[in-house]
Design a protein around this nucleic acid. Structure first.
Length: 212
DNA sequence: ATTGCCAGACTATTACATCA
DNA sequence: TTGATGTAATAGTCTGGCAA
């Protein structure tokens, strides 16, 4: 017999009269190991159980919980030496201490998952807002680019008119490099650049220059 | 290297206690 | 009284260590 099961029998025997435990004691053998659905425990209300005839779950005292919490804070794992020591200090069965740690680890994990989820959710929301902002910015920049292209077209047509009215002129578009009033455009991803005195400005900054 | 056993951890679930 | 919630306890499974 598994010593742990022995432990359980000792513990449970505190609550149940002789023979009751055997109704739902762990089954041995392959049948139990292979059965998928977990067996339901029997309800134990009524005239069987503790001293007053009713099986009770003992709620740990505040002091016991505080001590356990303190211990859990130091180390989530519970070595058997520490388990026995804690159990002796708190007047509990070592099995109860082990169960408390198991449940506490489960609660801790679930809380951690919840925290991680809300952190990821908030990061996702921030990213969505940023994406919207960038998309709006991109639209604006494209609009300005379109305006600039139209302006180039207009100026180019004007220049052509001027050129055809002066047949002696040897001017051509190639001769002007770059056209003095336009500078040069460079597309880098979604940002277009144009030269200023010393450096290039961002599209949105140019936006301000353009409408000055 | 393999096998069987054991202890302990984990997850899912149950059931009791408490409170609104 | 009842439904929701918290939590102690149980069931089943998995894994690592160890001896044969």
């Amino acid at each position: 017999m598994n010593p742990e099961i022995d432990d359980q029998m000792v513990l449970i025997s505190q609550y149940y009269p002789d023979g009751i435990y055997t109704h739902f004691a762990p089954e041995q053998g392959a049948a139990a190991a292979n059965s998928k659905p977990r067996r339901r425990r029997k309800k134990n209300k009524g005239d069987q159980g503790g001293s007053d005839g009713v099986m009770r779950k003992r709620k740990l005292s505040e002091e016991q919980v505080n001590m356990l919490e303190k211990s859990f804070g130091n180390e989530h794992k519970l070595e058997s030496e520490r388990k026995d020591r804690l159990a002796a200090e708190l007047g509990l069965d070592p099995r109860q201490v082990a169960v408390w740690f198991q449940n506490r680890r489960a609660r801790w994990k679930s809380k951690k998952l919840e925290e991680e989820y809300s952190k990821l959710k908030s990061e996702h929301e921030t990213a969505v807002v940023e994406k919207c902002r960038l998309e709006t910015e991109l639209l604006k920049v494209k609009e300005h680019l379109h305006e600039a292209e139209k302006e180039i077209q207009r100026l180019s047509e004007r220049f052509d008119g001027f050129s055809s009215n002066s047949p002696s002129s040897s001017f051509s578009m190639e001769a002007i490099d770059p056209p003095p009033y336009l500078g040069e455009f460079a597309m880098d991803q979604n940002v277009f650049l144009l030269p200023t005195e010393n450096n290039y400005v961002h599209g949105l900054e140019w936006d301000n220059l353009y409408y000055m």
